[in-house]
Design a protein around this nucleic acid. Structure first.
Length: 957
RNA sequence: GCCCGAGUGGCGGAAUUGGUUUACGCGCACGACUCAAAAUCGUGUGACCGCAAGGUCGUGUGGGUUCGACUCCCACCUCGGGCACCA
């Protein structure tokens, strides 16, 4: 008989709410050490109006962990709230004529009920809603602390503007050049914006990661986002002028190869130079077009380089005093480095392409080094010749066979006074027979270390790569005039075949340089660099920087965080503008600066917030001089709201401060933070910054440290049954409510726990059949507990034998160990499997009510309602969810026999049961006595016998 | 292009200080119960060869180390994620 999940789940949810068992008390520190408190945090939801499968996955599975911690005796804080400000509320308001506040709070009421139907052990008494004035008062207050410290500032910058949502976006909110929310193409716009100096914290956010015990992939993604790169800042003089152009480069060693410079179209210097630019009109036209391009257009242009030279002026390369041209091009960005670069076409791919297109000079200053340096090397000059048949587009290669390096191009030494072209022609003719050739291009010298196997010597060669084209009159198949012809065969390879088959470092480098047109961006030996010639290029970085008076410098990809939003539904930025006194903090006693009620929420295309229309609200007295002033009309990015909510949970009702220090000390830092991978470089990075900035402002108790989350785990995502992301348009959306109605919350939770490993970035398709397996399991638990459908407590008709009891005790103890450890690791799937194994066992041999109680306790975090029901039916008065987590007997998790595996030459031939402490000699004796072994050995004598205690015997013959 | 992560039955997945590949669940097949079906219970289930005993192959591909490799090393392929004209 299946159990009645509707009745049971409703009953216990009511009961738990009534008895408030999940409300967490703050304990006085003296008799309640921090170690006994445990803070489990899940990312709070946005009140979109309906709970989807993702929410179930995000909340009900970590609930298993929270419940287990509670049973372990921890005082667990497991709070929930709503991240309630944000665009969708406003868009709904505009579309359906609803008040954003009403819409939001209506959704919250509905979703609160839905979340409660999970049977999760959230402490609802600490609920936090970021759009409550009691909450955003403190968001504003903390913002003002940052403002006073200069961390929040206003600046006119180029910002990402979403033309559809009519608001600015942070870099993190752009996906592929489009608005993350609505998908519209993002434009660049100059606007005055409030920003937070997250860049001041770039290094700290980076190094802070080292001490965190998070998964490496999460840390790596943040490191990538911060994007630290080390290099130098070097100044270039402009000829005959006082102006200087500062550039940032990671390759100061290539300074002698800088043959031109590029300024970003937005570079301020251009306007200063206007009078001297002879082609000003052309330049201005280019800048105009470039500025109008959206980020997407800049990317869509297939990276085709564009640019205009600033005619009439020249820069001076500080290394060799050479005069070089200055260009404007949109492949250089104002937002990174200094907005200007020195271009080294020989050693940077982008500069190389630009130089090729506009016919600019290229100069090699670093010669590549390949292979490994060996002792007693013999020096030689040589060539590598790539012969192309321009009709077929194929390249001539020689296949020497796998031993001698596979496919290579023609290569060989330069004899005596020969030049490289002559040497190459001679080698080509000798090895292939071709002689009508046209030289197309030549590479720089490449230093290559290798072993010449045929002559058994180590070599250091200095190789020149040459690209020849076969002249069309040479059609005859080549005839080899070489006695060595037996050794190799000629093959014509296409480009892709070359890349696939020519593995030699030197030869493939020549091909990439000459045929694919790749610039050499690696390190090597300095040339054409005056007194630095011959130096190792890595070493030259510092030396050359010093030589020209440059400065070693670090750059970050991370940009300051733009927090202004030109929209209604957010926390007003608590700033007042006075004509005389400028931007001032709203007085603390006036906080919160309440969001005014207005009628028209529509955003405006002039970049002003709808708040600008709330005239009464807008006008205030200047807090300094008392004259008429105006409020800031932008609101704060919702990522600001969510940057500190975990602190408010510690003390959610406090009216005097954002949270009492003592209460923060109770809970912070968060012991475990579970959330979605999509927040790794947004919320997770922002809130770390916010917390560090609060820490520096003395708002966080010192002893807590400056990192808010001790452990962070990202969960995977649940896909539709078809293995695709769930979406309405695909019609593959799983409605959790439907499954809860059909199978119950316990089944849905447990199925989600079972579907795959939780703390991995994987994605798991929802299998409508699969969930049935979990329901079957729970039905079997139910049936096991009530064998005759009525009374509980009798689990078996006949008494089990002593051996059976021993076996079961072992199985039970092993399960206790496994389930406990798996929950700790978030391996809920294998924990569920262990519970299934134990039930299978119990169904075979039965279980005393005592042992069954242990099973129930292990099940309780996964299926809280069912476990509670059966627990109470066993006659228990108190909730199972505060029962102590079962302990296992270490002696009983070990077996006293094991199956000894017998291998012959590593292949399994036999197996049999032996005692765990069996000696090697005894194991060998038993093994050799086995019929199967004798048969398999066929009278061969064992050469060696390997014995692995507790595992196997391997006979080597 | 660069940086992470992963590739195991029909499917989700299990197993790594190198030691029985495929636990658990789904699906499928057969059987029991039933007038029948569903539900439930039982048995089987990597591929190939074989009546069987048994054998051969098998953890993305190709090499290597080892008595022994899903696990370690080298080269590559595919998928997922992050970054990307970042100087």
């Amino acid at each position: 008989m299946p159990y009645d999940h509707k009745k049971i789940e409703k009953k216990w949810q009511k009961e738990w709410e009534k008895s408030k068992i999940y409300e967490t008390n703050d304990q006085p520190k003296a008799d309640w050490p921090r170690a006994r408190n445990f803070y489990v945090l899940v990312e709070f939801p946005y009140p979109s109006g309906n709970l989807h499968t993702g929410h179930w996955y995000a909340f009900s599975v970590p609930d298993i962990f929270a419940r287990k911690k509670r049973m372990e005796g921890k005082n667990v804080l497991f709070p929930i709230g709503f991240d309630a400000f944000g665009l969708p509320a406003e868009n709904a308001a505009i579309k359906r004529g609803l008040n954003p506040k009403k819409w939001t709070y209506g959704n919250i009421d509905y979703m609160r009920k839905q979340i409660k139907s999970m049977g999760a052990s959230f402490d609802w008494s600490r609920e936090v809603i970021t759009s409550d004035p009691e909450y955003y008062k403190w968001t504003q207050w903390i913002f003002l602390q940052f403002f006073k410290k200069g961390l929040a500032y206003q600046a006119e910058t180029s910002v990402n503007w979403c033309p559809k949502d009519k608001t600015v976006l942070a870099n993190e909110q752009i996906v592929g050049g489009c608005c993350e929310r609505c998908g519209a193409e993002v434009e660049q716009k100059q606007m005055k914006q409030w920003m937070l100096k997250i860049t001041n914290y770039a290094d700290r956010l980076l190094f802070g990661l080292d001490k965190l015990n998070w998964k490496e992939e999460i840390k790596e993604a943040q490191r990538n986002w911060i994007g630290k790169s080390e290099g130098a800042e070097i100044e270039f003089r402009i000829k005959n002028l006082e102006f200087k152009i500062k550039v940032f480069t990671t390759r100061p060693d290539t300074l002698f190869g800088a043959t031109y410079m590029v300024l970003a179209p937005e570079h301020p210097l251009i306007s200063n130079l206007k009078p001297l630019i002879s082609n000003l009109k052309e330049v201005e036209r280019y800048i105009d077009v470039a500025k109008k391009k959206t980020q997407l257009q800049r990317q869509k242009a297939e990276k085709e380089k564009t640019g205009v030279e600033l005619k009439g002026i020249k820069a001076v390369n500080p290394a060799n005093k050479e005069e070089i041209p200055i260009w404007v091009a949109d492949y250089v960005f104002m937002g990174y480095g200094t907005g200007a670069i020195m271009a080294v076409p020989a050693h940077d791919q982008r500069d190389f392409e630009f130089a090729k297109k506009f016919g600019l000079q290229t100069r090699t200053v670093v010669e590549p080094v390949t292979g490994e340096l060996r002792e007693n090397e013999e020096f030689r000059k040589s060539i590598v010749a790539v012969v192309e048949d321009s009709k077929t587009g194929k390249f001539l290669s020689i296949n020497w066979g796998p031993k001698l390096g596979g496919n290579l191009f023609v290569g060989g030494g330069i004899d005596g006074a020969e030049n490289y072209e002559a040497a190459a022609c001679r080698e080509i003719q000798e090895e292939t027979g071709y002689k009508n050739l046209k030289l197309v291009s030549v590479s720089e010298k490449i230093h290559h270390h290798y072993v010449a196997f045929s002559k058994n010597v180590n070599r250091n060669i200095n190789a020149t790569g040459l690209h020849f084209q076969l002249l069309n009159n040479e059609k005859t198949p080549p005839r080899l005039e070489n006695t060595e012809k037996e050794k190799f065969s000629l093959e014509w390879l296409s480009k892709t075949e070359v890349l696939d088959k020519v593995k030699d470092q030197l030869h493939s480098l020549v091909f990439r340089r000459l045929i694919l047109g790749e610039a050499y961006a690696g390190s090597g030996i300095m040339v054409n660099s005056g007194k630095f010639d011959g130096m190792d290029s890595e070493k030259a970085k510092k030396t050359i920087t010093e030589f020209v008076g440059g400065e070693i410098k670090t750059q970050y990809r991370l940009r300051d965080w733009v927090v202004s939003r030109q929209r209604y539904w957010g926390a007003p930025i608590p700033i007042i503008y006075c004509l005389k006194d400028g931007a001032l903090a709203a007085p603390e006693k006036d906080l919160p600066v309440l969001l005014p009620e207005i009628k028209d929420y529509k955003p405006r295309s002039d970049g002003k917030s709808p708040l600008a229309k709330a005239e009464k609200w807008l006008k205030v007295k200047c807090p300094k001089c008392g004259s008429v002033a105006e409020r800031e009309t932008d609101t704060l990015d919702t990522f600001v709201d969510s940057s500190w909510y975990f602190l408010r949970y510690c003390d959610p009702k406090n009216e005097k401060e954002f949270a009492q220090k003592r209460k923060m000390e109770n809970w912070m830092p968060v012991d475990l933070y579970s959330g979605g991978a999509e927040h790794t470089t947004m919320h997770l990075l922002y809130s770390r910054f916010w917390y560090e900035a609060m820490f520096d402002s003395g708002l966080i108790p010192k002893e807590l440290g400056d990192e808010p989350y001790k452990d962070r785990r990202n969960r995977g995502i649940i896909l539709g049954p078809d293995g695709q992301k769930m979406s309405k348009s695909k019609g593959n959306v799983i409605d959790p409510d439907e499954y809860v109605a059909k199978f119950g919350a316990d089944t849905v939770r447990m199925y989600l726990a079972f579907i795959g490993p939780y703390n991995e970035a994987g994605s798991y398709p929802w299998n409508p059949q699969g969930i049935l397996g979990i329901r079957r399991f729970l039905d079997r638990v139910w049936k096991f507990a009530s064998p005759r459908g009525k009374t509980l407590g009798v689990f078996r008709d006949s008494t089990p034998s002593v051996e059976e009891r021993g076996d079961f005790a072992r199985a039970l103890n092993k399960t206790i160990k496994k389930v406990g450890e798996d929950i700790e690791e978030f391996h809920f799937n294998t924990a569920v499997s262990a519970l299934m194994v134990l039930l299978n066992e119990m169904e075979k041999v039965g279980a005393s009510s005592e042992n069954f109680s242990v099973f129930l306790k292990l099940l309780a975090p996964f299926a809280p309602h069912l476990a509670e029901e059966l627990w109470s039916r066993l006659g228990n008065k108190a909730s199972i969810h505060f029962e102590p987590w079962p302990k296992y007997d270490p002696k009983l998790v070990e077996e006293n026999t094991f199956e000894l595996i017998i291998q012959i030459n590593g292949k399994v031939r036999d197996k049999f049961e032996v005692p765990v402490n069996i000696s090697q000699s005894e194991a060998e004796r038993l093994t050799l006595a086995r019929e199967k072994v004798k048969l398999a050995l066929e009278n061969r004598k064992p050469r060696k016998i390997i014995f692995v205690p507790r595992r196997l015997v391997n006979i080597v013959v």
